[in-house]
Each structure stands twice: as C-alpha cells, then as structure tokens.
Computed example of a mutant assay.
Amino acid sequence: MGARIDQFCEDLRQKLTSADSGLDSLKAKIDGKVAHVEQDVQSHLDRVRKRVEQGRTKIAAAQADIQEWADQKKAATSDRIAEWKATRELDKLQGRADKAERYAAAASAVAVAALDEAEEASLEAWLARQDANAAQAK
C-alpha cells in the first residue's frame, strides 16, 4: 500500500506542477498585457478541455468503483470483518483488501481529474470576466 500512496503523491505532484507551469506562463502574459493573450488562454483552455474529455471514461469507471466500495463497505460490518479475522477466512479478507485498493486507486484518479476540471473552470472564469470587462468598456 505504501507504493500506492507514493504513486498518488507523485501523480498529484506532477499534475500540480504541470498546471502551475502552464498557468504561470499565462499569468505572465496577462500581467504583461501581451497582445492576443485571450487567444493564448483559449488555446490553453482547449488543451485542458481535451484532457478532461479524454479522461471522462476513466473517471466514470473510477466513480463506479468508488460506489461499489461504498456499497460493499456497508455490507462488511466491523463484526463481520472481526469474524473473518478470527476464523482466518483469507479469501474474504484478501477480496476486501483488493477492493479497498481499487477504491483507493479510483479515488486518486478522481482527485487528479478534479485538478484538470478546476483548471478548466479557472480559465473559463477568466475568459468570462474578459467578456464582461470588454462589454463594460464599450
């Protein structure tokens, strides 16, 4: 399980670093009032939207795994788990551990995908504010 936690941390770090780098570049252009900055933001937004769209199937499967874990967790009460331990029902304990690991992987995938969605929302908000400001200036 330690490897899974390490992988989650690495995936999250890479996603945050990538988003930070891309947004820092856009921020510098915005602050520098570079011509065509809206086109650059729109281009970046298009790339993020493509990533979000490509991940939809994976995320839907991950959300199904999360729901399955939640349903099975209700069925496997602490008394039942204690009984499995006491009677050494390894197949049930191993199955529960396998499902818990799938749940952890699914939750990690959803968390990483949420970063893309947050980046998408931030870029859309900036573009919407630009539209509002441009309309007000006229």
Score class of each variant (00 low, 15 high):
Thr77Gly: 05
Lys85Phe: 11
Ser122Trp: 01
Glu68Ile: 03
Glu119Gln: 10
Ile66His: 04
Val34Asp: 11
Lys27Thr: 14
Arg56Trp: 07
Lys99Tyr: 00
Ala97Asn: 07
Ala137Arg: 14
Ser43His: 13
Ala64Trp: 06
Ala137Gln: 14
Ala61His: 11
Ile30Leu: 10
Ile81Gly: 02
Ala109Lys: 03
Ala135Arg: 12
Glu38Leu: 07
Asp91Ser: 13
Glu119Lys: 03
Val37Tyr: 03
His44Lys: 14
Arg51Phe: 04
Tyr103Ser: 00
Ala114Met: 09
Gln67Pro: 03
Ala61Arg: 11
Arg51Asp: 13
Arg102Gly: 01
Glu124Phe: 00
Ala125Gly: 05
Lys85Asn: 12
Thr77Asp: 04
Ala134Glu: 12
Gln136Met: 08
Lys50His: 08
Val112Gln: 02
Ala97Trp: 05
Ala100Thr: 03
Arg88Phe: 09
Ala104Glu: 06
Thr57Pro: 08
Trp69Met: 02
Trp84Phe: 07
Gly95Lys: 00
Gln94Val: 14
Gln54Ser: 15
Leu93Glu: 03
Gly55Ile: 06
Lys29Thr: 08
Ala104Trp: 01
Gln136Leu: 13
Leu127Cys: 02
Glu124Val: 05
Ile30Gly: 03
Ile59His: 00
Gly55Phe: 05
Ala82Asp: 10
Ala121Phe: 05
Ser25Glu: 14
Asp20Ala: 15
Asp31Trp: 06
Lys33Asn: 09
Ile66Glu: 08
Asp31Asn: 13
Ser108Asp: 14
Thr57Trp: 04
Tyr103Trp: 05
Ala125Ser: 10
Ile81Lys: 03
Thr57Arg: 11
Val41Asn: 00
Glu120Tyr: 01
Ala86Asn: 10
Lys73Gln: 14
